[in-house]
Design a protein around this nucleic acid. Structure first.
Lengths: 156, 156
DNA sequence: TTTTTGCTCATACTTTAGGGTGATTTTAAT
DNA sequence: ATTAAAATCACCCTAAAGTATGAGCAAAAA
């Protein structure tokens, strides 16, 4: 407890002790070399300087450091791969759900045969769907359809 | 409020009190051992207090606050149309310049015939190129090639 | 210089894609 | 209940795509 008190307040205690020592020293000096002219002014000046420095030291030591928080916004460019289906365009073109499904699988590189298997329908059905898709998208080839559909955000 | 004031300034108050105690101690010491003018000590004490306070004030006023910079990441979603060709993948796959050119035109929806016309070569040449492209990309269809090439950033 | 690589083209053949037409069934809307 | 759209499937035919093989030529690399 006593040790704790010492640790917590050693700055103050040290200060008091050193002040006492300083004053005693000055007194002794004064007593020793009292001959000096304007002794009082010098003494006061020294005191002022010393205690100003002491005050600065105290403030720096004992006050919490000022902190200014600067918030800087760092712009991070993120690739917008969050696909948002263009519903407007979809309804405008009149593409049905199934047709869009076929178009999506086309874009993934599947052949008509593979799409038929995937959707559990016949090859002819897929042909009919794809033909309708090309008609509605006003294209002639699946590659064109894919390109256009991607540009219109109809598929991913 | 008063308690808060105490907590915030206990260092300074403690210092003041201890200074007062110290001065009393000195007075007592003076009265006990040394015979000097009383006014001077009071003056010195006042000086000490004033200039210590001045030092504290100076320090508080003039110290630069520590700045903490907090960087907040602000996400900006950008359409990533800044295409960067994946040269590593390109050389890894061993795709030639011409083959890449054909692949690019494929992705734009052109037929082999159209590509041939565009590049002023025969249809058979384009067929050869496309076959090589499929081989190197390890795919069977142009739609697959397009899909893979886009995912690998080989084409736009 | 020789070799390799890239680009070109051809022929023959197979597979896939696409167009046209028509029909049935299911689902949704009027 | 009727109509309309969507989804399904078939057949026929043509066009395009893709495979395989061989070959000529020019530029770059060994």
């Amino acid at each position: 407890m006593t040790l704790n008190f010492w640790l917590r307040n050693r700055s103050v205690i040290l200060y008091g002790v050193s002040l006492a020592v300083l004053l005693l020293l000055m007194k002794w000096l004064e007593w020793r070399f009292i001959i000096v002219d304007h002794a009082f002014e010098l003494y006061a000046g020294a005191l002022a300087i010393i205690f100003t420095l002491l005050g600065i030291w105290l403030a720096v030591k004992l006050t919490k450091p000022k902190t200014t928080t600067i918030i800087v916004e760092k712009e991070i460019f993120v690739k917008n791969d969050a696909f948002i289906l263009n519903t407007n365009e979809l309804t405008r073109l009149g593409l049905s759900k199934r047709e869009l499904e076929v178009l999506q699988l086309m874009a993934e590189g599947l052949s008509n045969h593979q799409i038929a298997e995937r959707l559990f329908v016949s090859l002819n059905t897929i042909k009919t769907h794809s033909s309708k898709v090309f008609e509605k998208l006003e294209v002639e080839r699946r590659t064109q359809a894919i390109d256009k559909a991607k540009k219109l955000n109809l598929i991913q």
